[in-house]
Design a protein around this nucleic acid. Structure first.
Length: 570
RNA sequence: CGGGGCGUAGCGCAGCUUGGUUUAGCGCGCCUGCCUUGGGAGCAGGAGGUCGGAGGUUCGAAUCCUCUCGCCCCGACCA
């Protein structure tokens, strides 16, 4: 492609609405432009990169034996009613009415549609296992789109669904997709980490996320400093805390704590560490309440709590409820004498002589001990892992970092096949629900994450598998026929030999073109300049390592192909 | 959805506090010409704006007031 014949509108300055590097660089390099919040147009350079990712995904999905389909983006809301996910998606579901007044939605994901499709087509065990996939635009009316293409309202996703006769079959399909995702990301030359994850609104029991480590990532990763344990913060479990070595259980005592309603206030006031305190929180769900106890320096993980209570939604009780349950203002709740269901975090069960709220205004109680002074209905893991926690597998210290979620695989089981009635007949003629898995990759996110990890102060550094072009040919001065003719010949030759090449035939000064070259990050740059005029030499520069090679026009194609091969082998 | 910030030329911004010498300005980009050609050159000339929108106050509004729309950030939320 010749630069003057395409549209690559590069910008010298950062766009004012961009915060993270990938967003700035995608706009500056002319890959994307914003239409509205979280909605982007892809320009020629952008779509070429998207297509590179799509091709890698298709090749790997196909070679794993899965089959491409295309499902409609427009779907009837009634399908979501059947699966019960209208409330789970909430306002993220982009809904509208068609001309008949029927409620329709733009798909945020396709479990319902695919299940509805296959329930009529997969009646027999003979048709399974089967894995179907598609690459399609998804719609989610995000409360807060941000970071350019990293969290947008309209985005490209490869989603796949597996269908098996039993759990063993699902496990095989799941592993196959898991391995395929690794191959896809390896081919994209993207560093990633696989973590155990919560299944969230998708349902099912086992799931893993593919994360790209990045400080701008929105997900928090808990990782063992020693073994291979890694999990999303929502899912992460810490080793049980050790029982405190205080042999004597001190006498229970009421203390005055005037207007001290936070852990910080009380611990400062009493001169004790927050970890000697028990935080008592009242949660509401389904018109009922539960008191939750966690150690003072810990936080309740509402995802875990909701799962424990088998609820889609739980929330902190309002002030009125707290006052009526604890007979005190918010901030003085405690387990002693509290007449409601109580769930304690596991760490609380190892605490001795701790401080709890007094269920009385301006009052706390010290030296409280579980069992002796209060009982709980259940002890469970209901908190977030914190910075001093140990690995549940090997007991070494856990580390906490951030990442960008680019892929997520789920063992759905029979959640959708049961609610939507997708059944098959087994060998014995018995009817069973199909066992499903679901697998998603965010294509735009792969691109943004790649840029996050691969750029410098001058611009993007594309890994060759994703680069919009492999080679950029720069004649330093197009008004000098020697330069332009030679560059054009090189361009034609490389094109003929199957190299993806962009020719910068713009009438600009060399420095200007070099800056743009660095910005758009094409892996290999060939300069036709004074070296050619003086010595017949072409300069080849590799963007990723700044290495410079010289070649003659005769040897050029071979040289370039060698470099391309070596860049792929990385 | 709660809190904060910002909307002035294609992009980045100043002007607003204290309304009137601003015929709305600067840098980049764009157009024409000259000149220059290995790291975002220079000179000269030029095009481009209903100052986000509506209403109000005023002799007079980019500037003050009200409403509204859009965008960004923090939080909540999020396959």
């Amino acid at each position: 492609m010749k630069w003057t014949q395409t549209l690559i509108p590069t910008l010298k300055e950062d766009p004012s609405d961009a915060e993270v590097e990938s967003h700035k660089l995608m706009v500056r390099s002319g890959m994307i432009r914003r239409l509205s919040a979280g909605v982007y147009s892809y320009l020629p350079l952008g779509i070429r990169v998207l297509n590179k990712v799509n091709t890698i995904i298709r090749e790997e999905m196909n070679s794993a034996g899965s089959v491409e389909i295309l499902l409609p983006a427009l779907q009837s809301l009634s399908l979501f009613e059947l699966s019960g996910r209208i409330s789970a998606f909430g306002n993220d579901l982009l809904c509208m009415k068609d001309r008949h007044g029927k409620e329709v939605a733009l798909s945020p994901t396709h479990e319902e549609v695919i299940t509805d499709l296959i329930k009529n087509e997969l009646g027999s065990y003979k048709n399974m296992p089967l894995i179907l996939y598609q690459i399609q635009t998804k719609f989610r009316d995000e409360a807060r789109p941000r970071f350019g293409v990293l969290r947008s309202r309209e985005f490209l996703m490869k989603d796949a669904y597996s269908f098996d006769v039993d759990t063993d079959g699902l496990n095989v399909s799941y592993q196959k997709m898991y391995d395929t995702y690794c191959r896809i990301l390896n081919r994209c030359q993207l560093d990633y980490l696989i973590v155990e994850a919560d299944t969230g609104v998708m349902g099912g029991d086992v799931s893993h996320e593919f994360m790209v480590p990045n400080s701008n990532g929105e997900d928090v990763i808990v990782k063992c400093s020693c073994c291979d344990y890694a999990a999303n913060l929502e899912k992460a479990v810490a080793a049980q805390t050790e029982t405190e070595e205080e042999s004597i259980l001190e006498e229970l005592k009421e203390v005055s704590t005037p207007k001290m309603s936070t852990i910080k206030d009380v611990s400062n006031f009493l001169g004790i560490e927050p970890k000697k305190m028990v935080k008592t929180l009242i949660y509401s769900y389904n018109n009922t309440h539960v008191a939750v106890l966690v150690r003072g320096d810990h936080d309740v993980n509402e995802t875990k709590l909701a799962k424990l209570l088998s609820q889609d939604k739980i929330e902190l009780a309002d002030e009125k409820t707290v006052v009526s349950l604890t007979n005190s203002p918010v901030g003085f709740a405690g387990p002693i004498g509290l007449k409601t269901h109580i769930i304690a975090d596991r760490a609380v069960s190892t605490m001795k002589n701790c401080v709890v709220g007094g269920n009385k205004a301006d009052t706390h109680i010290i030296n409280a001990n579980m069992e002796r002074d209060f009982t709980v209905n259940k002890i469970a893991d209901i908190r977030f892992v914190g910075k001093d926690d140990k690995c549940p597998k090997c007991k070494e210290l856990l580390t906490i970092s951030r990442g960008i979620e680019i892929g997520h695989v789920f063992k759905l089981g029979t959640k959708y096949s049961k609610t939507l009635g997708a059944k098959f007949l087994d060998k014995t003629g018995k009817e069973n629900p199909i066992v499903m898995g679901s697998y998603g990759i965010g294509i735009n996110r792969i691109i943004a994450a790649t840029i996050e990890r691969s750029h410098d102060k001058d611009g993007i550094i594309w890994p060759i598998p994703l680069a919009p072009y492999e080679v950029l040919v720069v004649p330093v001065n197009i008004n000098d026929n020697t330069f332009l003719d030679t560059a054009t010949k090189i361009y034609d030759q490389l094109c003929k030999d199957g190299v993806e090449v962009l020719l910068d035939d713009r009438d600009h000064r060399p420095g200007f073109k070099f800056k743009d070259a660095d910005l758009i990050g094409i892996p290999i740059r060939i300069t036709v300049g004074k070296g050619y005029k003086e010595k017949g030499e072409l300069e080849i520069k590799v963007r990723s390592n700044n290495k410079i090679y010289f070649s003659t026009p005769e040897n050029l194609v071979r040289e370039i192909k060698t470099i391309i091969t070596s860049l792929h082998a990385k």
